[in-house]
Design a protein around this nucleic acid. Structure first.
Lengths: 132, 132
DNA sequence: CGTCTCGCTTACGTTCGCGTCAACCTGCTC
DNA sequence: GAGCAGGTTGACGCGAACGTAAGCGAGACG
């Protein structure tokens, strides 16, 4: 079920990361698995956090930026100023992502054109050196 | 004009990079400024390349990936197999970017919702502790 | 009982993308 | 001709995000 506890190996297989990575994220206080004895156990919340961490990484955010962002996703009973600060961070990241989104759109169009050009050159070259 | 040669300092000011960065990119064979004596001079082509380099970096591509991509933007008279290989690289990057674009869209919506939630919590808290 | 597998911690090593000297050349200008 | 500004080439340093190796339990198995 969705609230199943997972071992570190199961997490690694599920998310395609190494144990080292998970322990590293824990050391940087991005995830907080429970302990059964010495062993780590990851629950639904940890998995949700890891999903966000990996996503954030793909967009080029540092682990520290991601750590701050994660507070947004936690309904923890912090105080007003903390919530406000967290919202600030969230807005900054959002602005980053929106900029990235716009620029990415342009870059994709650009790259598509370059590929098309290169393909045309390929075809032209084929015409000049026919094989059949 | 657009074909003006620029010194390293002018480039740095224009693109907000350091001299070290430009020399580093040159060492990695991403740009090839001409020399007047010992000094580097950057032309329109170098600037176009630098634009693409910085853009690629913002999307999380490595300098090596960018270097390969830059060949797409050069009409250099390479041979068929080279052009084909370059197109391959371009398509791979394009696929990366398209994936990134789709995921970014989701992440932005997600983040917007979280910020809205946090704002609601802030307002709720204000209602419970009115100042006026 | 030995040994295997998992996981744990500690700690040093590595890659990327530059920053930061140090030492040198070169063309003014005073 | 001394100084200075601007550029050059090494070479070493550094932070981020892990990789890797060493050595230590603790439980499972035959």
């Amino acid at each position: 079920m969705s609230d199943t506890l997972m071992t570190i190996r199961e997490m690694c297989d599920a998310f395609e990361v190494t144990p080292r990575t998970l322990r590293f994220y824990e050391a940087r206080e991005l995830i907080f698995p429970q302990r059964r004895g010495q062993h780590r156990l990851y629950d639904r919340r940890d998995r949700a956090r890891l999903t966000l961490i990996l996503r954030g990484k793909r967009f080029g955010f540092s682990l520290e930026q991601i750590r701050q962002l994660l507070e947004l996703y936690e309904p923890g009973g912090v105080n007003r100023t903390q919530i406000a600060a967290t919202i600030e961070v969230g807005r900054d990241r959002l602005a980053d992502m929106e900029r990235q989104y716009a620029e990415l759109s342009i870059a994709i169009d650009d790259l598509r054109r370059q590929i098309a050009d290169a393909e045309r050159r390929l075809v032209a070259d084929t015409d000049e050196h026919p094989t059949g």
